[in-house]
Amino acid sequence: MAHVGLAMHFRRDPNDRRKELTVSRFIEVVHKNAVASRNTADAFIKEMLHYNIAEYVAGGDGRTHPLQPTAATIERFTGWVTAHLRTLDHIDGGDRLGRYLDRPDMLATLQPLIADGLLASKPVREPNQTFSLFIWLNNGGIVMDWLMSGIDPDHAGLERIPTSVVSIGDFAKWLKLSRTHLGRKLRTAEELGSIGWLGQRGHSVMWVSHRFYEEYMTVQAAKLAVVDNAFKACFPPSQGDD
């Protein structure tokens, strides 16, 4: 939903009310693309406004109340883009990040193409069971990122891959999540055979299954491919480049 809203913002035409980012238009686009229900989209916008991630445009039409991401939100998303471009460069030795930093104005063109790609990507839109379980949890993506980031690459081929997580309470505190809600999701994942503990539950190192690890990596690879394709559309290789 965040990508949908940002794309609508960057594609807006301040001189055409029909193309402004408004609550009603956002809800309609989210629903039309089967991203979430209208109620979920409405609740999402209210959260974005409450936490100053989005704001009403000053001096806007009082009847439509156009919205825009705050400056801090654009800054954070710029960090998201640079992190993904840096990752792609590490994979193939490319120079995407340097080229992007030379043309930061291209963000307004790049992000909508990323949003289009994510909406069209089946691996991203229809992830497997455990990934889908976490993605609907507040900060669920960060939960999975934290689990996977604590994995020793040498252990990635194991059926039960140790993570760096031991205490559910500490895990919830680090992520600013409800311990009860996080614990409920972890128990469901445990019932699926996707996570577990090497010793006593909640008091020993947590492991993730190889299947869950592959689910996560599949989605990350698909997302990186979307970012790469969007980058190529914005920054086509010059003559003489391979």
Rank of each mutant, 00 (worst) to 15 (best):
P112E: 02
T78Y: 06
A108M: 03
L101E: 12
P66V: 05
A58P: 10
N39W: 05
R76K: 13
V124M: 09
I114C: 09
G59D: 07
E28L: 03
L119F: 03
N39F: 03
I74C: 13
R96I: 04
Q111R: 08
H65L: 15
A36C: 08
T70C: 11
M48F: 14
H31L: 01
E47V: 11
M48R: 12
V30P: 00
P69K: 03
V81H: 03
T22S: 08
L133M: 06
L107F: 13
R63G: 06
H65A: 14
A36Q: 07
L118D: 06
Y100H: 11
D95M: 04
A41D: 01
D105Q: 07
A72P: 05
D61T: 06
G79Q: 10
R76V: 06
D42M: 09
D42E: 12
I74D: 09
G59Q: 07
A71T: 08
V23G: 02
W80Q: 11
T40E: 13
S121F: 04
H31T: 05
N33V: 04
A43S: 09
A54S: 14
A41V: 00
V29I: 03
K32M: 07
D105G: 03
A108E: 05
T73D: 11
A34V: 01
P69C: 07
Y51G: 10
F26I: 02
T70W: 11
R38K: 14
H50A: 15
H31F: 04
D105W: 05
M106I: 02
N33A: 07
D105H: 06
L49W: 12
F77L: 09
P123S: 05
R99M: 02
D102H: 09
F26A: 07
T40N: 15
L110E: 05
P69E: 02
M106Y: 01
E28Y: 00
P104D: 03
E126S: 04
R63M: 07
L97V: 05
